[in-house]
Amino acid sequence: MPCPEVVTGHVAIPGEDFERIQRSVDRGQNMWRLSPVRTAQEVGIVHLGLRMNDVYTFVEQYRDADSGLMHAVVRVKHRNCTYLVNLYQPQKQGPGGIWVVESVTEI
């Protein structure tokens, strides 16, 4: 495994309260949560072993037909490894909704 410091698989951040995070964004705090790329960066650096100087690229955004939730994919180039960070909007769908990291997959 070339990049063992990076957490892969399903992501659950201890103490991450989606309602509380959405309320803080509604009040103008933690506005990075409105961007899938910035969320992948912030959460990735603090919790998942990614780095600020990794290359973060927005890949796509789509609505899941079953759940109705918006999802996004961000590709991260970390050293000699490449990951897909999958995010979704658990509270509000669309421009005002927060993004959270759901999973990280090495490609």
Rank of each mutant, 00 (worst) to 15 (best):
I21F: 08
R63T: 10
P36C: 10
Q61Y: 02
V104E: 11
I21H: 12
P36V: 04
V100C: 03
L84C: 02
A65P: 00
Q22L: 04
V101I: 10
E16Y: 07
L48Y: 02
Y88G: 05
V46D: 15
T57P: 00
V7Y: 13
G96N: 15
V74Q: 07
Q91R: 14
G28C: 08
R23P: 00
H78R: 07
C3K: 08
D17A: 06
Y83H: 10
M52Y: 06
V100Q: 13
Q29K: 12
L48N: 04
M70P: 00
T105I: 08
Y56V: 02
V7I: 12
L84M: 11
G97K: 12
R33S: 07
I21Y: 10
L34I: 02
T8C: 08
V43Y: 06
A12K: 12
A12E: 14
N30F: 08
H47F: 14
Q61I: 04
G9D: 14
N86G: 11
E60C: 01
E42L: 04
V7C: 03
L87C: 06
K92A: 01
V101W: 10
Y56E: 06
N30M: 01
G94C: 07
L87E: 02
F58K: 03
D17W: 05
P95V: 13
P90E: 15
P4K: 13
Y62M: 02
L50E: 03
A12R: 11
G68Q: 07
L48A: 03
Y62S: 06
R63K: 12
V59I: 13
N86Q: 13
L84E: 15
E42S: 08
V104I: 09
V55M: 09
A12I: 06
Q41P: 00
V100T: 14
Y62K: 04
V59E: 14
I21N: 12
I21K: 11
V76T: 03
V6Q: 04
Y56T: 00
V74K: 01
G49L: 09
V46H: 13
V73R: 14
K77F: 09
M70D: 02
E5W: 05
Q89G: 06
R23V: 11
V104D: 10
N53K: 08
I13V: 15
G44R: 00
